[in-house]
């Protein structure tokens, strides 16, 4: 797997080859980001294509000083997905719909509950992840699956790192609640 720097250098030297390297490195990641927001597989493929076309056609405008290449690409993918979902189902994107009655749990208790790696728990988590609102699923995906930092996620979704941290904590609490209800 090439690093971002190598990809950018290859794009400068040999654009077609650099584009293929970029696709090899980011195709699946972009797909997962879009899939965390958009449910339909066909839509995911179309949006992935749109996002990657935008990435490849505007790669000249990327400035490394503003953030990593991954952050820039995820931002494009996120905006494509969110704009698509807004056109489809505008209500789902509300950030206020998740402030339901969630019991206050300490981080240690959450960690104990969530990190006891059992097969049933993982399956239950998979189901619980499906029940999360779109933005929550996206944050979880970016943080746990794409290994983005809080600052990077904040840059992608246009929020502060503190807000992202707070939001991730809420999501974990919600997952815990869902697991408890299912159990």
């Amino acid at each position: 797997m090439c690093t971002d720097k190598e990809i950018l250098q290859t794009i400068d030297a040999n654009p077609p080859q650099g584009q293929r390297l970029l696709l090899a490195a980011y195709q699946q990641r972009v797909q997962s980001v879009i899939a965390s927001v958009v449910g339909n597989i066909k839509d995911v493929e179309d949006l992935t294509q749109e996002a990657l076309i935008t990435v490849l056609s505007t790669i000249d405008s990327y400035k490394p000083s503003r953030g990593t290449l991954a952050t820039w690409i995820y931002t494009i993918a996120y905006r494509k997905a969110v704009s698509f979902v807004r056109q489809q189902r505008p209500v789902i994107l509300s950030f206020d719909d998740t402030d339901t009655a969630v019991p206050s749990i300490s981080d240690e208790q959450l960690a104990d509950e969530l990190s006891t790696g059992r097969e049933e728990r993982i399956q239950a988590l998979e189901q619980a992840l499906e029940l999360l609102p779109v933005h929550d699923r996206l944050l979880i995906t970016l943080y746990y699956y794409q290994d983005c930092s809080l600052a990077e996620i904040a840059s992608i979704i246009g929020a502060t790192a503190n807000a992202v941290s707070h939001r991730l904590r809420r999501i974990r609490e919600k997952l815990y609640t869902l697991l408890t209800i299912n159990a």
Partner: peptide, 16 residues
């Protein structure tokens, strides 16, 4: 405030 919410179960569930 850069608190880590590392959780192998969640990662595994997402990976699957």
């Amino acid at each position: 405030m850069q608190e880590k919410f590392s959780d192998t179960d969640i990662r595994e569930a997402l990976r699957r």
